[in-house]
């Protein structure tokens, strides 16, 4: 137990958060974000780390960055400013097809499930 405490004290907050997220999402039967293939239907999950409204060509676009401790994925909802439940810190499962946008993993208009 003492060793556990010492390990915790020597680990950075970011690493602790990654470990916590990995524990939380490992038990669900979903793909870790880092292993999720591009351009194939995937189911990934994580906590919402960032929510932003980014206008594209004058159209509101909701962008949500989700992380599970292995990596992050950006869900883009076109034409939306707000989606009830998709708030900072919320755990979600996303289903869709990821593609690469300038090095970012992006899923366009994914199906989402809110986790309690």
């Amino acid at each position: 137990m003492l060793k556990g405490l010492r390990d915790r004290l020597h680990t950075s907050l970011d690493d602790l958060d990654c470990a916590r997220l990995q524990d939380r999402f490992a038990c669900l039967s979903i793909t870790p974000i880092a292993d999720a293939p591009m351009r194939q239907p995937i189911v990934v999950g994580g906590e919402i780390k960032r929510v932003l409204i980014a206008p594209h060509n004058g159209m509101a676009t909701l962008e949500i960055v989700v992380g599970d401790g292995t990596g992050t994925v950006t869900a883009v909802f076109s034409g939306r400013r707000h989606i009830a439940g998709l708030d900072h810190g919320r755990a979600v499962v996303l289903e869709g097809v990821a593609h690469d946008v300038k090095g970012k993993r992006v899923i366009l208009n994914p199906a989402y499930t809110l986790l309690p």
Binding site: M38, R39, G96, V97, A98, H99, D100, L108
Partner: peptide, 8 residues
């Protein structure tokens, strides 16, 4: 093409 297949 973009949403379901991620065509570049």
């Amino acid at each position: 093409a973009k949403q379901e297949f991620g065509v570049p």
